Simulated scan of single mutants.
Amino acid sequence: MNDGGKRPQYSDTEFIVRSALAGGFAGGLAKTAVAPLDRVKILLQTHNAEFIRFAGSWRGAVQALQYIVQTQGFRGLYQGHTLTLARAIPHAAVGYTVYDKVSKWLMPTPEHQTSVRRLTAGAITGMSALPLTYPFELIRVRLAVETAHDSATRPTPWIAIRGIMSEGRSSGGITRVFPFLHFYRGFTVSLLGTVPYRGGIFLVWETLNAQARARLSPATLDANQTRIHLVVGAIAGTTSQVATYPLEVIRRTQQASGKGTPNRMVGFQETVRGLWTETGWRGFFTGLGVGLFKQVPMHAISLTSWQWAKKALNI
């Protein structure tokens, strides 16, 4: 968000480094804060047999968290979190940096700040880092859906990587020759979903912050900036999550499907038909409650800490 204040003129390289540090810090902090909820959401989205009984209520999410602690220990809440950070930090660093650059290019003056341009800047941001970080997300999902109670038998990232590569080699078609392509199960639907999701987040974020600047006095803004950012970030994350949630469920199901169908890639239409046959339309919103419970604080923390970091780094 451009607050209209004067900033030092940095070289392109220094600006990119500072912006990447701010974005990476924001992404890592936000993901760490909501990691336990994220694991529960993945377990519910993929209709894990051990956790399906917790679906359908806010209380179920709390009970699922308690169950993980009881059966897997506190560390179970953060199973796969190293992979989460390995994806989230560079993804946020690249994404926020791209957004800063693209928004300056598309919207150099307040007169250029239209809804279409804000949506476009956010969509480009969402797509920018996805090809590089998507394999980390797939590995994290595989680790998150494992529910082994014995810590000695829990999979490690390397075991998950070897398993996914083995699935690729045993598949027909191009993945037999290029098994690394198996790390992109669900990539197409993820790419389709990130356009309205990230675009919507930044559209709401910029629009509501612009309204705040227009309606509130500078003194009020200065005294309540953090509160305003937290509220606006929460609203932005909530609206985008609800609008794109069915695509996220389809993507997670495809990512987890390798455990059940390791010899082939499960397509978009097959995944949709399977979800509809098994659970009906409600299945496309399984885990939405805990998803919102996670997204509200995550985006509030991420967007607000991004602004904190940018201010601290003077960009």
Rank of each mutant, 00 (worst) to 15 (best):
residue 267 G to E: 10
residue 299 H to C: 06
residue 146 E to S: 15
residue 53 R to W: 01
residue 99 Y to G: 08
residue 205 W to G: 00
residue 300 A to S: 15
residue 112 H to S: 11
residue 104 K to Q: 13
residue 227 R to Q: 09
residue 290 V to W: 01
residue 162 R to Y: 10
residue 221 L to E: 07
residue 99 Y to M: 12
residue 3 D to G: 02
residue 290 V to K: 09
residue 25 F to R: 04
residue 233 G to N: 02
residue 173 G to D: 10
residue 307 Q to K: 10
residue 268 F to E: 05
residue 116 V to C: 05
residue 72 Q to P: 00
residue 272 V to N: 06
residue 53 R to S: 07
residue 69 V to S: 05
residue 158 W to E: 08
residue 149 H to N: 12
residue 222 D to M: 10
residue 130 L to N: 11
residue 249 V to H: 01
residue 111 E to M: 08
residue 293 F to S: 13
residue 59 R to P: 03
residue 278 E to T: 12
residue 169 R to I: 11
residue 123 A to D: 10
residue 20 A to D: 00
residue 65 L to R: 08
residue 39 R to D: 07
residue 54 F to V: 04
residue 189 V to R: 14
residue 248 E to G: 05
residue 82 T to V: 15
residue 221 L to Q: 13
residue 201 I to K: 01
residue 49 A to P: 00
residue 75 R to W: 05
residue 212 A to W: 03
residue 282 R to Y: 08
residue 95 G to F: 07
residue 290 V to A: 12
residue 49 A to W: 03
residue 311 K to C: 00
residue 220 T to H: 14
residue 160 A to C: 07
residue 150 D to K: 09
residue 77 L to T: 01
residue 119 L to E: 02
residue 36 P to V: 15
residue 204 V to E: 04
residue 142 R to N: 08
residue 239 T to R: 01
residue 39 R to M: 12
residue 83 L to Y: 15
residue 53 R to H: 08
residue 67 Y to L: 09
residue 63 Q to P: 03
residue 27 G to D: 07
residue 202 F to P: 00
residue 104 K to N: 15
residue 117 R to W: 04
residue 264 R to N: 03
residue 145 V to Q: 14
residue 4 G to A: 04
residue 209 N to M: 12
residue 90 P to W: 01
residue 48 N to P: 12
residue 299 H to M: 09
residue 174 I to C: 04
residue 245 Y to G: 03
residue 104 K to H: 14
residue 80 G to F: 00
residue 268 F to W: 13
residue 28 G to H: 07
residue 30 A to K: 03
residue 160 A to H: 05
residue 78 Y to N: 02
residue 135 P to N: 07
residue 44 L to Q: 09
residue 11 S to Q: 00
residue 189 V to D: 05
residue 238 T to W: 01
residue 172 G to P: 00
residue 2 N to R: 06
residue 81 H to F: 13
residue 234 A to H: 01
residue 222 D to S: 15
residue 256 A to F: 11
residue 111 E to Y: 13
residue 207 T to F: 12
residue 234 A to F: 00
residue 300 A to D: 04
residue 236 A to T: 02
residue 84 T to D: 10
residue 128 S to G: 14
residue 181 L to V: 06
residue 310 K to D: 05
residue 230 L to C: 05
residue 293 F to C: 04
residue 28 G to T: 11
residue 238 T to A: 12
residue 20 A to F: 14
residue 302 S to Y: 08
residue 58 W to V: 11
residue 84 T to I: 07
residue 308 W to D: 09
residue 156 T to W: 09
residue 39 R to G: 13
residue 312 A to W: 15
residue 64 A to N: 06
residue 101 K to C: 03
residue 108 P to S: 00
residue 30 A to Y: 02
